[in-house]
């Protein structure tokens, strides 16, 4: 494009009512620098969750949330952020799913209840029917290029599926017959999630560990990288919360937890639970929270209640 044309177009847009000047300038500038990156189109479904992962996502730094919206993703549908509401929002969802079939990334935040036809989580209602989380995930999952489960509920069931799991909740992988990228955590560290989105955009699918998680973030245990590892090795254990020694005695499940908290740390990378003189409770784990509970009981003595928590299998759950 000629310089004069660009300037003219900017002048026109600057006085327009739609406030889309910056959008225009940025996309033109990107073309000019020859970037191969487009933005990742994202449909984000909130299902059976506490909403802590969308709050954690808001805490991202470098890039901050505004930069994520501007440069990294087109967040087409999100119950949390979208300006559209009511049927306008549902229309956007249907339109995006159809127009970007095979191209969008489906982010699911929360577990999927299976009992009672999934009626424990209804995404939206119309005058004559309910759209349950189960239906929405089964509808959109097969249409997406990637499916990303954000948080431990979406990845493995998490707190939503904790014993006695009366809603029969499961992780997204249990309702879709396709690969799901699990970004677990209760909540996620924003770096894990934004980093995964960036990987999808820039380099495609990341390498996954045996739980379907990006190995980049979950490949080593908390214990392996813990600043207090020397205390553990020398058998020096905290007597109470607030002490500076190893938190194994206070229930820490760092030895069985894959996550990079010790060196990544949280919220602009300032702190993490063990640095705050408390145990890691293994919130990224497949068996969280039941496999970590009681949280303050040493790992070897925790009630191994997973067998109980996993039974009975929720109706309709498919075999792994």
């Amino acid at each position: 494009m000629k310089k004069e044309d660009f300037v003219k177009r900017c002048q026109e847009l600057a006085v327009g009512p739609q406030f889309n000047l910056s959008e225009y300038v940025i996309s033109e500038a990107k073309k000019h620098r020859g970037s191969k990156f487009r933005k990742l189109p994202v449909i984000w479904l909130e299902t059976s969750d506490s909403g802590d992962n969308n709050i954690a996502f808001m805490n991202t730094t470098y890039p901050y949330l505004g930069q994520v919206f501007t440069d990294l993703i087109d967040l087409l549908y999100s119950n949390t952020f979208m300006a559209a509401q009511g049927k306008d929002a549902l229309n956007i969802l249907e339109y995006a799913a159809a127009r970007l079939r095979g191209k969008f990334t489906l982010v699911v935040e929360g577990a999927v209840p299976l009992k009672d036809n999934g009626l424990y989580t209804i995404i939206a209602r119309t005058e004559d029917r309910n759209l349950t989380a189960l239906e929405a995930v089964m509808w959109l999952g097969p249409l997406a290029e990637y499916v990303v489960a954000v948080g431990t509920c979406a990845s493995f069931g998490g707190v939503s599926a904790a014993r006695p799991n009366i809603t029969g909740s499961v992780g997204v992988r249990n309702v879709l017959n396709r690969e799901v990228i699990n970004v677990s955590g209760c909540p996620i560290n924003p770096d894990w999630f934004v980093g995964t989105l960036a990987h999808l955009l820039m380099y495609g699918k990341p390498e996954l560990d045996s739980f379907g998680r990006p190995a980049l973030f979950y490949g080593f245990t908390v214990h392996r990288h813990c600043q207090r590892r020397s205390y553990f090795d020398q058998g020096q254990f905290a007597e109470k919360l607030g002490d500076i020694e190893c938190m194994f005695s206070q229930g820490c499940v760092g030895p069985k937890t894959g996550a990079d908290c010790p060196y990544r740390q949280w919220i602009n990378h300032v702190n993490w639970p063990v640095k705050a003189n408390t145990p890691c409770i293994g919130c990224t784990n497949e068996d969280f929270p039941d496999g970590s509970s009681p949280f303050f009981t040493p790992l070897p003595e925790k009630n191994m209640e997973e067998e109980q928590s996993n039974s009975p299998a929720p109706e309709g759950e498919k075999d792994e």
Binding site: N79, T80, A83
Partner: peptide, 14 residues
Amino acid sequence: IMFSPVTRLSGLLS
């Protein structure tokens, strides 16, 4: 008239 989803809040509301 069903106003759903009521977006921009925490959780799911109609």
